[in-house]
C-alpha cells in the first residue's frame, strides 16, 4: 500500500540506522573529549583520586563520606553545615556548627575562636549538587586561614551510610 513505504523502508534500513546511531554516538563522544581537552572549562576525564571524583572549583579539596567520618572521629576538625536552619535542626553531623551562607558574617564571628585553632575545616550540604557547601567553602577561603575541605556527598550520604546524627538547634 502506498501509504506504508516508510515503515517498510525502516525495517530494511534497520542495520544502517543502528550503524549510523553508533557513528553519531562515537563521533560525538570523540569530539567532546577533544574539545574538553583544549577547553579552559575542561574537566579531568578520570578523576585522579576518589575524593576528587566530583569536580570542584580550583583550590577546593573534596572528601568522601569515609574520610568525613574519620575526620569527625579524630575530633580536631570542625564541621560546618551550610544548609538552612530547618534542615540543620532536623538533623546534622554530630558536633557540626551551623554556618548557612545567608548568615555568614555574624555566625562566622561567633565561630572564629573555634575555627582559628583548627588547621582545617569540613563543609557540607545535602548532596554533591546542592551548591551551598561549595559557596560556603569559597567564602571561607577568604576569611579562614586553614584548609577548607568539602564533604562532597554531604548529609544524604552520611545518613545513607547509617552514621550517627544529632538533632536540634545550633550549638
Amino acid at each position: 500500500m502506498a501509504l506504508r513505504p516508510s515503515p517498510n523502508a525502516a525495517r530494511r534500513d534497520l542495520g544502517g540506522a543502528i550503524l549510523g546511531a553508533l557513528a553519531i554516538v562515537l563521533g560525538s563522544a570523540a569530539l567532546g573529549l577533544l574539545v574538553n581537552h583544549f577547553s579552559p572549562y575542561g574537566i579531568p576525564v578520570v578523576p585522579r583520586t576518589e575524593a576528587a571524583r566530583v569536580p570542584l572549583p580550583p583550590g577546593l579539596t573534596g572528601i568522601t563520606v569515609e574520610q568525613a567520618k574519620a575526620a569527625l572521629e579524630a575530633g580536631s576538625t570542625p564541621f560546618l553545615d551550610a544548609r538552612d536552619s530547618a534542615k540543620y535542626a532536623a538533623g546534622h553531623l554530630p558536633g557540626a556548627y551551623h554556618l548557612p551562607i545567608a548568615e555568614f558574617e555574624p555566625r562566622f564571628l561567633d565561630l572564629a575562636d573555634k575555627l582559628e585553632r583548627a588547621p582545617q575545616v569540613v563543609v557540607y550540604c545535602d548532596r554533591a549538587d546542592c551548591g551551598e557547601a561549595i559557596e560556603l567553602a569559597e567564602r571561607l577561603k577568604e576569611a579562614y586561614q586553614g584548609q577548607v575541605l568539602v564533604f562532597v556527598d554531604g548529609w544524604n550520604a552520611w545518613v545513607a551510610a547509617g552514621y550517627p546524627v544529632t538533632k536540634g538547634e545550633t550549638p
Binding site: I24, V25, S28, A29, L31, G32, L33, V35, N36, Y41, G42, I43, P44, V45, V46, P47, E50, R53, V54, P55, L56, P57, R127, A128, D129, V152
Partner: peptide, 30 residues
C-alpha cells in the same frame, strides 16, 4: 559548565565515580 553537569550525574549514584566525568564530557555532545 561540564563540572556542574558532572555534579548532577554524580547525584544519581548510578555510574562508577570514575565514569561520571566521562559521561559529563560526552553526553552533551551526543
Amino acid at each position: 559548565d561540564p563540572a556542574d553537569f558532572a555534579r548532577f550525574i554524580a547525584a544519581y549514584r548510578l555510574l562508577h565515580p570514575d565514569l561520571v566525568n566521562l559521561a559529563a564530557i560526552t553526553l552533551p555532545w551526543i
